[in-house]
Amino acid sequence: MARAITENFHEFVVEVETETPGTYAAICGLTARGINRTSNMSTSEVPDCDNEALPAAVERAVQSQEVTVTGQGVWAQTSHEMILDWWYSGATKNVRVKNIKAAVGDTEIEAGPAYLVSINNQGERGQKVTAEIEIQFDGVPTRTAKAA
């Protein structure tokens, strides 16, 4: 039996393009992050032509796809202004999600323009201020395979 090859937290990275085109920086302070890939489905009821008394079959098709990124952690001064500027601008920024331990030839990076949809901060006396963010790609991100 072969053991699964796994990836550690620091090898699953979310990065945002900085003011210098082509340069990316991780969002500091995140202690949890996720990527959600969703196919939005359309359905059609298709009757049995030989016996219309039978229940129709439900056939499905992918109507659209979307990719979102979530993150939670502490609110870090390092990323404070970049995150606020991005949200208040209402504009897209180039984002990439990296799976550093991807095998050669497999998808290592998913990248594209994305919106910062939400930022939620909370603070409690005696605790660090926390943050939750949601990023939505504008379209389906481009996949890049890991080179040898």
Rank of each mutant, 00 (worst) to 15 (best):
Met1Pro: 14
Ala2Thr: 04
Arg3Glu: 14
Ala4Thr: 12
Ala4Ile: 12
Thr6Tyr: 13
Glu7Arg: 01
Glu7Leu: 02
Asn8Cys: 07
Val14Cys: 13
Glu15Met: 03
Val16Trp: 08
Val16Arg: 03
Val16Glu: 05
Thr18Gly: 08
Thr18Phe: 04
Thr18Gln: 13
Glu19Cys: 07
Thr20Gly: 09
Pro21Ala: 12
Gly22Ala: 14
Gly22Met: 09
Gly22His: 10
Thr23Ser: 15
Thr23Met: 15
Tyr24Pro: 14
Tyr24His: 13
Ala26Gln: 10
Ile27Trp: 02
Leu30Ile: 10
Ala32Lys: 12
Ala32Val: 15
Ala32Gln: 11
Arg33Phe: 00
Gly34Leu: 06
Ile35Met: 06
Arg37Leu: 06
Arg37Ile: 08
Arg37Cys: 08
Arg37Tyr: 02
Thr38Glu: 13
Met41Val: 01
Ser42Trp: 07
Thr43Gln: 07
Ser44Val: 13
Ser44Tyr: 14
Val46Met: 05
Val46Lys: 00
Asp48Asn: 07
Cys49Trp: 03
Asp50Arg: 00
Asn51Tyr: 13
Glu52His: 10
Ala53Arg: 13
Leu54Val: 08
Pro55Trp: 04
Ala57Ile: 15
Ala57Thr: 10
Val58Asp: 04
Val58Cys: 10
Glu59Met: 11
Arg60Pro: 14
Arg60Gly: 15
Val62Phe: 02
Val62Ser: 05
Gln63Cys: 04
Gln63Ala: 09
Gln65His: 11
Val67Met: 05
Val69Ser: 01
Val69Phe: 02
Gly71Gln: 07
Val74Pro: 00
Val74Lys: 06
Trp75Pro: 06
Thr78Cys: 10
His80Leu: 14
Glu81Lys: 13
Glu81Asn: 11
Met82Phe: 03
Ile83Trp: 02
Ile83Val: 14
Leu84Arg: 04
Leu84Glu: 02
Asp85Lys: 05
Asp85Pro: 00
Tyr88Val: 11
Ser89Val: 11
Gly90Phe: 06
Gly90Ser: 01
Ala91Asn: 09
Thr92Ile: 12
Thr92Met: 08
Thr92Val: 14
Lys93Trp: 06
Lys93Arg: 04
Asn94Leu: 11
Asn94Glu: 10
Val95Ile: 15
Val95Gly: 01
Val97Leu: 11
Val97Asn: 01
Lys98Tyr: 01
Lys98Asp: 10
Ile100Ala: 15
Lys101Val: 09
Lys101Leu: 12
Ala102Arg: 06
Val104Ala: 11
Gly105Phe: 03
Gly105Val: 00
Gly105Met: 06
Thr107Ala: 07
Ile109Asp: 10
Glu110Lys: 06
Pro113Ser: 11
Ala114Glu: 00
Leu116Ser: 03
Val117Tyr: 07
Ser118Asp: 08
Ser118Lys: 05
Gly123Arg: 07
Glu124Gln: 12
Glu124Lys: 07
Arg125Gly: 15
Gly126Phe: 06
Val129Trp: 05
Thr130Arg: 04
Thr130Pro: 01
Thr130Gly: 02
Thr130Asn: 05
Ala131Ile: 15
Ala131Glu: 03
Ile133Thr: 01
Glu134Cys: 05
Ile135Ala: 00
Gln136Ala: 14
Gln136Asp: 03
Gln136Pro: 03
Gln136Met: 09
Gln136Lys: 14
Phe137Arg: 01
Phe137Met: 10
Asp138Ser: 07
Pro141Asn: 07
Pro141Ala: 09
Pro141Leu: 03
Pro141Phe: 00
Thr142Met: 08
Thr142Val: 05
Arg143Ser: 09
Arg143Asp: 11
Thr144Ser: 09
Ala145His: 10
Ala147Gln: 13
Ala147Ile: 15
Ala147Arg: 13
Ala148Pro: 00
